[in-house]
Amino acid sequence: MAEVTLTNTRKSYGNVDIIHGIDLDIEDGQFVVLVGPSGCGKSTLLRMVAGLETISSGEVAIGGRVVNDIDPKDRDIAMVFQNYALYPHMTVATNMGFSLEHRGTSKSEISERVNWAAGILGLTPLLDRYPRQLSGGQRQRVAMGRAIVRSPQVFLFDEPLSNLDAKLRVVMRGEIKALHDKLRTTMIYVTHDQVEAMTMADKIVVLNAGRIEQSGTPLELYDRPANRFVAGFIGSPAMNFISGKVHADGLAVSGITIPLPEKAKKYIGDDVTVGIRPEHLTVEEGGLAAQVLLVEPMGHETQITVQLADNPITGLFRERLALQAGSGVKIGFKTEALHMFSAKDGHRLE
């Protein structure tokens, strides 16, 4: 087990900069999720830690040892790939024992380790099968088995669940988390799915265009997003945003005034974007008048999209509301649930 430290790590292909100076401390045993939109450089960053991609400048250290110029095989890491990358011509057992075989481990120890890993992952009855004879979820488990047999210092996962159907994804999510609880090995996990990030991570790192937007625990990111990007990225359905000018009595937006918390007084005259999460909206008398655009009942919740001051706003309600598209509704919220961001650069206003 080991901590992973990135210091001003950069990556460029030719003269195109992909990763712009990342600083990141990952503690020993932590489950860190790198999350961000497609193309933001998550995989690239992970592959730099793995050693599959060179580091243009800066430093990557694993367990206190700078690994910039060390081969993947000597970094004591294991990686689970998006398409599993199981060797098609080898059985499950051979796949799992392959890396040990190439490190000169004895036959008896290999089979012991493989059986141990297969036991943990429920693969024991499948050991003699070939990858083509397995379901997607089973392949996924074999890929994890191949990673854990070696007891590496760090596990790297690159969107390991993206090829599974929604239901299986939830199951495997739980299994990976349980595996982490059991092994307590440092894990770095890449996904673009913020639900995966929220449910699994000890620490989430939100990346955007090769930069860290914010890192912290899932709830820190949910409760106090550092900027508008993180606010919009974390949480599902996404946070609603409305922009306007701050007045003494609230935010003026196309004819209506949205009440603001006390701290907004500091920003009178400024252009501000306020954000409110769908789950913090209520339907109440005395709220702001809005027009219902769309009602999506899901049984346990009802998702409603309304038109409020020319902005489409999504609300998530526990109760079953008898509303119809086109009807009017009064939307309320607690002012302390509002987030405020600078309209100029999107940073959080306190």
């Binding site: 050693g51 993947p72 790939f81 990358a85 190439h102």
Partner: peptide, 18 residues
């Protein structure tokens, strides 16, 4: 041939020739 396979093998400790 998927590049991932070879990357997996690299992480598993194989040389290019292997």
């Amino acid at each position: 041939l998927p590049a991932e396979l070879e990357e997996a093998a690299r992480v598993d400790g194989l040389s290019r020739f292997k």
